[in-house]
């Protein structure tokens, strides 16, 4: 019994003495550092004085605001006077695929249906190697080969230049998919990302609002069994919002607007010598411009 008490006392003493020593040490260190801290504080005051006032908007936000204004200005015109185009700056694209993911989320896309894949290309050989990222939305061609071949006219060029699909009309013959030189059309095979798991997740049963119509993907119902494609988020544009891929682009590499508006950002951008379009030789007159 007596020996146990002696043991406890000695541990307590040790702890008290140790804590005291540590506090003394820390205090001594702080005192020794005071002149250095004073120096640092005064240097910071000088630096802050040299800086410009904080801007209200950063550059990329200005672009977004400008594009939104472009869209709103375009919507004031009759539809047939609008020509939506997309400009993609390949030098700015970092290949993050946030546009692809945002598009999948916005349009509740199933497996295999990808409206805006980002094509990765490795150029050169070691040690001179670089990667090129090319987002590939639908080109919304001026002379679309897909609308020409559709046996029932379910896909058509709408007044504002966007190539649309009437899901309730499409019979799913896949002729348009075959005819698109850009591989921009895919077929909805009726699959789910979470198929063959205990439960199909709720996010796959959420409605999408493509072409301004609320639809839930259900077996046997459109858009299952239909051809599907990018429509520049027509439903968003018509509400004055930017396409989802434009909004989420972290490199601010994607622009949208009305080509017929000379004041729009896109009209400005396509006047660049860096502009090129995919497979122009086919005479499709794509409405997606790339800045190389």
């Amino acid at each position: 019994m007596g020996s146990k008490e002696t043991k406890n006392t000695s541990r307590r003493d040790f702890l008290i003495k140790g804590a005291g020593a540590a506090a003394l040490g820390a205090g001594a260190f702080a005192i020794s550092q005071v002149p250095l801290l004073e120096k640092l504080a005064s240097a910071n005051e000088d630096t802050v004085k040299d800086l410009l006032p904080f801007p209200e908007l950063i550059e990329s936000d200005e672009i977004i605001i400008r594009m939104q204004n472009d869209v709103r200005r375009a919507l004031k015109k009759p539809l047939n006077e609008i020509q939506w185009i997309m400009v993609i700056d390949l030098k700015k694209c970092v290949g993050c695929s946030s546009c692809t993911v945002a598009c999948v989320s916005e349009n509740v896309l199933p497996p295999g249906v990808v409206y805006r894949p980002v094509i990765e290309e490795e150029i050169g050989t070691f040690p001179n190697v670089t990667k090129k990222f090319t987002p590939r939305p639908c080109m919304q061609c001026e002379h679309p080969p897909c609308t020409k071949v559709c046996p029932i006219g379910a896909t058509y060029k709408s007044e504002d230049g966007i190539v649309a699909i009437d899901y309730d009309k499409c019979i799913g013959c896949r002729y348009c998919i075959t005819a698109c030189p850009y591989g921009a059309r895919t077929f909805d095979w009726g699959e789910y990302h979470t198929e063959n798991t205990p439960e199909i997740m709720q996010y796959e049963k959420e409605p999408n609002y493509e072409y301004g119509v609320e639809r839930v993907r259900e077996k046997k119902n459109s858009p299952i069994g239909n051809a599907r494609k990018c429509h520049f988020c027509k439903h968003r544009l018509h509400k004055g919002m930017l396409s989802m891929c434009v909004t989420t682009c972290i490199g601010r590499a994607t622009y949208i607007g009305d080509k017929n508006d000379p004041e729009s950002l896109v009209a400005e951008l396509i006047a660049s010598p860096r502009v090129m379009r995919l497979k122009e030789e086919l005479g499709t007159e794509p409405n997606v411009y790339y800045l190389t």
Partner: peptide, 13 residues
Amino acid sequence: LIDGLAENMYRSN
């Protein structure tokens, strides 16, 4: 149709 496009289809089939 375009090199590298197929790799971005995200479907096992």
